[in-house]
Simulated assay, not measured.
Amino acid sequence: MKVYISGLYSGTSPQPGIGLSRSLRIAYPDATLVGVEYSNRSSGIHWLGFDELWLQRPWEELDLPAYGQLITELLDGGALWISGTDLEALWLASVFPDGHANLLSPPAVGLSRITKPGVEAHKGLPLQIPPFVSTDHSDWDLHAFCRKHDWRVWLKGPYYEAVRTKSWDQFEAVRSALAKVWSTQRLFLQAHVSGYEESVMLAAYKGELLGCVSMRKRELTEDGKTWAGDVTEVPEAFAASLREIIRDINWSGGAELEMIKDPEGQRWLLEWNPRFPAWVHGATIAGCNLPAMLVEAATGIPAEKTTAQSEEFTRVVLEVPVRARYPLPPLPEPYAG
């Protein structure tokens, strides 16, 4: 079995690739795990849990049609692919609009139902969507929205990217930057919600919910990313509704629903991410190996048992040896003076 895993960035806003490799190694110790990355500056390429590395050119320099043909040949040849980045998952859905048996990533119809800010697919879940306004509105209306919410607002892209904007000057600067990233002015402002941060992570294959877990963020980084958390079962009422939604949108792959639980107990859905989160191995530590469930469903090969170690997890910083084929980049020239 060969599994290609993308999303190896391991900096302050990490991607799930390293966690995916750790979880799959427990379940399939003899599998060949291939790390896929688009930058030789990503420290995750040096993770020893990958048997092979597939280093590509930066995304903006790729010949995407040719790259799509390469991936098609890999999948047709029996390899599996788990996408760990939003941008790649969106592109793969355009290459395989109806999915592929070995592509463990959502099809186009599923992605169309999780577009922010409305996240159509959430209907039926006990979740609310925070107030929002499209940047298609006039600057006068946008300024009024910001004032109404006392400048406690976020500017967001249609699928990912969210920046807190506390002034009009900051809003204009961020709007310009995000418009370049997405090649569109169709962004949106959303009101900030105070409360406890929670997530539900799931794995599904061809519309069947394979498993899901709930996680409360207990420690955060300065960027608001998970550093530590506790993992529990998803309440059955929530899971039952989620199961129907997954079937309706024919979801395949991992996903994360990011939420805020306010002081009154109401949960607000912020995002539905189309891939596993970076804390994916935290759930495996708690005994719920969702990547293994996904691979087992796709291949029919039984996964080895995952033993629960703790309901809580935290992160540490590790030093690892650099791969000889990919030495560190040279030092930059010092600035004059």
Rank of each mutant, 00 (worst) to 15 (best):
V34M: 04
G35L: 09
V36W: 03
V36M: 03
V36N: 02
E37T: 15
Y38N: 13
S39P: 07
S39F: 10
S39W: 10
N40T: 04
N40G: 07
R41N: 11
R41F: 12
R41D: 11
S42H: 15
S42G: 12
S43W: 06
H46R: 00
W47C: 02
W47T: 00
W47P: 00
W47A: 02
F50M: 09
D51Y: 11
D51R: 05
L53W: 02
L53V: 15
W54M: 12
W54T: 06
W54A: 15
W54E: 14
Q56I: 01
Q56Y: 01
Q56W: 02
P58Q: 09
E60N: 14
E61M: 09
E61Q: 13
E61W: 03
L62T: 13
L64C: 02
P65D: 14
P65V: 05
P65M: 04
A66Q: 10
G68V: 06
G68R: 10
L70P: 01
L70V: 13
I71W: 13
E73C: 09
L74C: 13
L75W: 04
L75I: 06
G78K: 01
A79D: 04
A79M: 03
W81E: 08
T85I: 05
T85K: 00
T85S: 11
D86I: 14
A89I: 00
W91L: 02
W91S: 14
W91G: 01
W91F: 15
A93F: 01
A93M: 02
S94D: 15
V95G: 06
D98C: 12
G99A: 12
H100W: 07
H100C: 02
A101Y: 09
N102T: 08
L103V: 08
L104P: 05
L104W: 10
L104C: 11
L104V: 09
A108W: 06
V109T: 10
L111G: 09
S112E: 13
R113M: 13
R113I: 02
I114D: 01
T115C: 11
P117F: 08
P117I: 10
A121N: 08
A121M: 11
H122Q: 14
K123G: 03
K123Y: 09
L125K: 04
L127Y: 13
I129L: 06
P131T: 08
P131M: 07
P131G: 07
F132K: 00
V133T: 10
T135H: 08
D136A: 15
D136S: 15
D136L: 15
H137N: 11
S138I: 05
D141C: 05
F145V: 05
C146Y: 12
C146E: 13
C146K: 09
K148A: 10
H149N: 08
H149C: 04
D150A: 06
D150M: 08
W151I: 01
R152E: 15
W154T: 00
L155P: 04
K156R: 12
P158G: 13
Y160E: 14
Y160W: 11
E161G: 02
A162W: 03
V163H: 01
V163G: 00
V163K: 01
T165N: 03
K166V: 08
S167N: 05
W168C: 07
D169N: 08
D169E: 09
Q170N: 09
Q170W: 06
F171Q: 04
A173L: 03
S176Y: 03
A177V: 01
L178E: 07
